[in-house]
Design a protein around this nucleic acid. Structure first.
Lengths: 184, 184
DNA sequence: TAGATATTTCTCAAATGTGTGACATTTTTT
DNA sequence: AAAAAATGTCACACATTTGAGAAATATCTA
């Protein structure tokens, strides 16, 4: 994959994340190249959108699975999953929404869906395990803890835009806030 | 304002919230009426978008200011501001973004900007006050506590869509999570 | 520097979206 | 039930967006 193609995809992800029907001219401007060049790399708009979705899936999946496999300690796994989501930034909320939107047909035949499920059943097992050992609040459902997880990630995306703070500081703030929120 | 006009605006807010450049046909479909009817109520697309923005501002401002004025106790005010945001739902994140986007020219001449500032300087004063009295964690900046606030609201929007839980239960969960997250 | 490759510029046709007039149909009001 | 008001259907002009060819220009590479 050429550098230009990557550049277009990153630009498109940024633009489409906040306006899926934005004209391709916007994507081209954002990537600092012409629309004609953009059309040489992608058959049509649909293909570009689809490739963006794939790129988001691949990078988020990779980060989340690496986080899960980076430790055997549930609490460490949970912490690293949060950091992985923060590293994905705005992509994460799209990833999250993709498998939950009403029109999405979630099926195990689809590799992406299967991986998504692996990630979130693992997450839920982690949470239940930590609730049993008294580390997490047993009164909060795993589902709530999960939406909170993505809400905190969303917060860090906003914090980055507004505050221009050090990303490591933001990560620490996020983990402190999150772990306190869900502790008994 | 007729019921139809309201219906169109609510529909448009839903659609534009997730895709600002969506075709008007989508708005019409979502409101279960024809594009022709939609055009009878609004001069053009810009007018509809602008009216949606006004509607969001009015309803969010009203809810937030009422929350502030509903008590003299800072911690109660903070709690009610969270509930007010939750009641606004998806509108809240648009409201929040409107005054913070890069191209928005934030000026005190504009009533909406002035009101927004009133709400958020009040919020910050509240937080600083509560940090002084040891109720909130003094190590977290008011800015972070604010992005967390909107992140938690975002979480409740997702929780509603996914879990179809009782809204009052979600509010309680949200407040418990938030207050713990920001306590010392 | 010469040749290959990538990008831009300009152009244009096709597709899609927007706004409106004329008239039919439905719903509401009296 | 008749009149009035609101909504739908169809047709159309116009604007914007999309996708691609052809040639000029820029960039990279040996």
């Amino acid at each position: 994959m050429t550098a230009t193609k990557k550049r277009i995809i990153e630009s498109a992800i940024q633009v489409f994340n906040e306006d899926l029907s934005a004209p391709l001219q916007k994507v081209a401007d954002n990537a600092a190249l012409t629309r004609r060049t953009l059309h040489r790399y992608f058959k049509d708009r649909n293909e570009l959108v689809e490739i963006c979705r794939q790129a988001i899936q691949i990078s988020c999946k990779k980060a989340m699975i690496a986080a899960i496999q980076s430790s055997y300690e549930p609490i460490v796994q949970l912490e690293r999953m949060l950091y992985a989501g923060i590293d994905c930034g705005a992509k994460y909320s799209t990833f999250y929404k993709m498998h939950r939107s009403a029109d999405h047909n979630h099926t195990m035949q689809n590799k992406n869906c299967a991986d998504y499920d692996y990630i979130y059943t693992t997450f839920q097992k982690l949470v239940i395990e930590l609730q049993k050992t008294g580390i997490l609040n047993p009164k909060m459902s795993p589902e709530w803890i999960q939406v909170l997880h993505s809400g905190i990630i969303e917060s860090t995306v906003n914090a980055k835009q507004i505050n221009h703070q050090n990303i490591e500081d933001i990560k620490q703030l996020a983990w402190i806030s999150y772990s306190k929120a869900i502790s008994p």
